[in-house]
Nucleic acid binder design. Structure first.
Lengths: 328, 328
DNA sequence: TTGTAAGCGTTATCAG
DNA sequence: CTGATAACGCTTACAA
């Protein structure tokens, strides 16, 4: 016995398929009609086919969230926020991973045209002309959590990295640290570039020279460890890291070198992810508003699905600093 | 201008829709036909609609992975392994979160009947009669990463927690620790129950009495911290934790109490997730084979999609111990 | 209020 | 090898 269709239900209830559909969708029907349909549905264990339904109505009631790396705790914060908003709006959230390459991001965006979901929320790590083009051409609404040229004409929600950097440097100088180094991720990524720029500006604002700037191969713990040596050779008394994973990697190397955090070297991370409070010592971290970014991006996406003609908005969420024990 | 359909392509190429479909699916066609279709497809930027296609062929080429908590690093390990297997087989992987409640798991399994995906890989944290029933009744193949009664007649891949526990206790006694406590997650969960049982057995095998057994409200860092006091009051010189998050939570409380890890108290976690190497000190952890479990579960799922009549397999993957610096 | 029937965009069957 | 056409399961005018 195969899965029952709406026709089967109609037959069992002795009514038309249209009536079944109406009852199921809460459209007006007699008491008796409703009852007969309900009974038949229960009897057969009928469940409407989402594929057929979405083919007809043109909507899937699914939204896709694409992130670069599920291992990066900043995405779990964001994911939780997005999930909350979209499920409250009656959508299912499906999460997919793109990996670090632009080509995969482009493929994903183009694939959306196949109708898998009604909208895409993407947090691209690298952006190039092709990606912008793909986003513009995308059949379904796209909102970007991150930076993308304004000519892309797409809703974006991004962090204010320079401001966040300033917060970090303010705090460190206030603590008396002036030999500040920077452990960045790849500078050819969007966040990498933004943070590098922000770091330079923030130091300039304080009339400081960077002690060292290192660039990890990617935004991971392992990559952070690998380049920590380059940072430490410069004997900084404070290091700002482009995200929490890198910061934790650095702290491991500091421990291995017999250096105390925060007494010998203060460390500040970025993202203020769950890892920041889990690390030891708990990590002072720049909160770039990942939860709020997720929330607002999701709201933007829902709004655009509702009305695709609205003018694109570009939201910037403000950072704050979560001071923990990795700084004095 | 709206999205082109196969009919539009056919018109543009001056051929029938059937021919377009054939060319696109690599069925025999003349050189010229192929060329004309290809040109029209490129011209219009045609992308086949996945909904319509799956309605017709009855397959979505999507697989769903359902996990309880995206914040638990054990799932990222598993997710990576699953992703690798299913994408190699030509499927897209969509990840959804169920939360800690059985009702949500049941709803998810029942929802699969709507045709969102061709198969479901679920790692349920709590199992009850309803869930088993839902899985049996599920229209699409389901494989469970975890334990479920064998009468459910479903493929499962599970860890060997008792064996893992034994590894942990072996190691601790070898290090001379005999005052061993256990920090568990909720005992009414599948992993919680398995680990409690395993812990008791392992201690018995070593003629040891448990010093303390505490139960966190869930398998999270915060919950681990909250009940650590109950564990520490018993003055253990070793604590086994039901997962890495709990272990890290405990280590924070140990530090707060001025106790050294591993000298005063040895700590061993379970799951051997990325967090184990990121924590400080790096956490000795029982590797319950999450990557292998993910891989094999995915393979089982693919095999069952291929042939739904095969007899259900129940695979158990063997644990190993990753010794790091949280034990002497 | 209810039923009939026409699609939604594909693929598969069956003639030509 | 190619083209017309009937499904796939559902929603929605339109008619009754």
């Amino acid at each position: 016995m195969s899965r029952p269709t709406i026709a089967g239900v109609a037959r069992a209830a002795g009514v038309s398929v249209a009536s079944v559909s109406r009852v199921l969708n809460g459209l007006p029907a007699t008491e008796e009609m409703t009852e007969r349909v309900r009974r038949a549905v229960a009897e057969l264990g009928y469940v409407p086919d989402a594929r057929a339904r979405s083919l007809k109505v043109g909507r899937t009631f699914q939204l896709t969230l694409a992130v670069a790396d599920v291992g990066n705790p900043v995405y779990v914060t964001m994911m939780r926020a997005v999930e909350e908003v979209v499920s409250a709006a009656g959508y299912r959230l499906v999460v997919t991973t793109t990996g670090p390459d632009v080509v995969d991001e482009v493929a994903l965006v183009q694939g959306m045209a196949r109708g898998y979901a009604d909208g895409l929320l993407i947090s691209p790590i690298r952006v190039d002309e092709d990606l912008v083009k793909a986003i513009r051409a995308c059949e379904v609404p796209v909102v970007v959590a991150g930076s993308v040229p304004s000519k892309a004409g797409v809703d974006t929600v991004r962090a204010n990295s320079p401001k966040g950097m300033l917060l970090a440097v303010d705090h460190l100088t206030y603590c008396g640290r002036r030999r500040i180094a920077f452990l960045n991720g790849p500078a050819d990524t969007v966040p990498g570039a933004a943070r590098a720029k922000g770091f330079a500006e923030a130091l300039r604002a304080h009339d400081l020279e960077p002690i060292a700037v290192a660039e990890a191969a990617d935004f991971t713990f392992a990559a952070g460890r690998r380049v920590s040596g380059d940072v430490l050779r410069a004997k900084p008394n404070a290091v700002i890291c482009a995200n929490d994973l890198l910061a934790v990697g650095l702290m491991h190397e500091l421990a291995a070198a017999g250096l105390d955090v925060p007494n010998d070297v203060a460390v500040v991370g970025m993202d203020d992810s769950e890892l920041a409070e889990q690390s030891f010592p708990p990590l002072t971290s720049v909160n770039l508003g990942s939860a709020e970014r997720g929330r607002r991006a999701a709201e933007l996406l829902l709004a655009r699905i509702d009305d695709n003609d609205r003018t694109p908005r570009r939201i910037v969420v403000q950072p704050s600093l979560s001071i923990r024990r990795s700084t004095p």
